[in-house]
């Protein structure tokens, strides 16, 4: 099968990409479009570092064929980052020292973003549940949970796509 053109909406802007069948969304975002916040951790859905939002729901971009997002809204960490500043969730991660090496951070923020959009006042249990598919090897998770709690308290929830 040959390549085909897939059109989707990335951070509010329509993009067209030429993809071979079964090319993952992660590969398209990171390598074709240069969205380097979309990490390539395990390429098997085991670590969560490639998490992006499709139609507002967190998905593992490393397992999703790019063709599957045709016509849909895709949101990456870049999409939620204002041109000059930080999304309140990013600020909350900064305030709580919710990262060390930073590799898991984009995925952690994207699942937290989806959580707070759906549930602006999550319980600690609900936060743990949301983060359960994302691996962090540096922080011991507690600072990440604290960041999400901090963002919820600051009312960081519904943020429009800015870029």
């Amino acid at each position: 099968m040959g390549s085909k053109i897939v059109t989707f909406v990335l951070g509010g802007r329509e993009v067209e990409v030429m993809v071979k069948p079964m090319t993952t969304l992660q590969a398209v975002l990171r390598y074709q479009l240069g969205y380097t916040a979309v990490k390539e951790g395990c390429r098997q859905g085991g670590c969560g570092s490639c998490t992006v939002l499709v139609e507002g729901e967190p998905v593992l971009a490393c397992l999703l064929p790019a063709e599957d997002v045709a016509g849909q809204q895709v949101t990456t960490l870049e999409s939620i980052t204002p041109v000059d500043g930080l999304d309140p969730l990013q600020q909350a991660f900064l305030d709580a020292s919710g990262f060390q090496c930073g590799y898991c951070t984009p995925g952690m923020i994207m699942v937290s973003k989806a959580l707070l959009e759906h549930n602006p006042r999550p319980t600690r249990e609900e936060i743990l549940d949301a983060l359960a598919g994302n691996i962090c090897r540096c922080t011991g998770y507690e600072p990440i949970v604290a960041a999400v709690e901090g963002a919820a308290q600051a009312g960081a929830a519904p943020g429009a796509q800015r870029r």
């Binding site: 540096c138 922080t139 011991g140 998770y141 507690e142």
Partner: peptide, 8 residues
């Protein structure tokens, strides 16, 4: 951060 992450 080292202490909390190290505990994990």
């Amino acid at each position: 951060g080292q202490i909390v992450g190290g505990a994990w």
